[in-house]
Design a protein around this nucleic acid. Structure first.
Length: 260
DNA sequence: GCGACAG
DNA sequence: ATCTTGTCGC
């Protein structure tokens, strides 16, 4: 697939000020409301899928693409796994030399290159992109999922394993029951009206007895063309019994496979 | 100055 | 993100 807005392709050689300025601009053109994204019921994944059992595209069901990265020395490997219904329909990889270090808040400038490299070789046309990292839960409301969602002008969701910024509506220190969703509000650290719901902490999975051993929530936020509420529901629909949604879980595996 | 900080 | 075996419990 090809970028729809080439002017927003992240440039790792830009100055920090330029990066931050571009992020504010991206947040302004991003849509944090449902606009052409699939319905959660249309992308349900009941059982864990197998990366090695691929099937060809069939019919007009929505295609969801999961994206994740792995690293070796100075190289970033990005993998995209495209899923339609209960089938993996395509797997693509991309790799790029790492040019800048990891800086919280500027992740898309470090990992955007390999991701675009991978998406460039994808032949199917995804209806939804799911990224490992934040979307609107970001200092300038322009995390990885928002940045790339805008670059491709495609519905996009960010799924993070840790909270970058924002204020949970309630404490997340104690284990939550499975299915719990806690709003993440904008606070002073975010360029949004205080009280804006940036995303949700979602307890996608929990053990029967959290006293002994518990699972942490995931942090789901809209990237582009999806609301915070629909984003959590979409991710929950693709859980297949795991903490992380199937597209991300498979992309994670594909990326480490791609390394070796 | 101090603390916080996706992957 | 990455370096890594066994081990405990629904």
């Amino acid at each position: 697939m090809e970028p729809a807005r080439a002017e927003y392709v992240p440039n790792p050689d830009a100055s920090r000020d330029e990066m931050e300025a571009q992020q504010r601009e991206i947040a302004n053109v991003a849509t944090f409301a449902d606009a052409g994204c699939p319905a959660p019921a249309a992308v349900e994944i009941e059982e864990p899928l197998d990366l090695d059992q691929r099937r060809s595209l069939a019919g007009t069901g929505p295609i969801v693409a999961g994206v994740d990265q792995a690293f070796l020395d100075g190289v970033a490997v990005s993998a995209v796994v495209a899923i339609q219904g209960d089938s993996v329909v395509e797997v693509a990889c991309g790799r790029t030399e790492l040019s800048i270090p990891y800086i919280p808040g500027l992740l898309s400038f470090r990992e955007g290159g390999p991701i675009i490299d991978a998406l460039d070789s994808l032949t199917v046309d995804p209806d939804l992109l799911v990224f490992d990292g934040s979307g609107r839960i970001h200092y300038r409301q322009a995390g990885l999922a928002t940045h790339l969602g805008v670059v491709y002008d495609r519905p996009a969701i960010g799924v993070a394993k840790n909270l970058l910024c924002g204020q949970p509506a309630e404490s997340l220190a104690e284990p939550l029951p499975e299915g719990t969703r806690v709003p993440i509000y904008a606070d002073e650290s975010v360029t949004a009206e205080p009280g804006t719901i940036l995303g949700y902490a979602s307890q996608s999975r929990q053990f029967p007895n959290p006293e002994r051993r518990h699972v942490n929530p995931i942090y789901v936020s809209p990237g582009h063309r999806v609301s915070a509420e629909t984003a959590v529901s979409l991710v929950a629909a693709m859980g297949a019994g795991y903490k992380l949604p199937e597209p991300i879980r498979l992309a994670d595996r594909a990326a480490s496979d791609c390394k070796h």
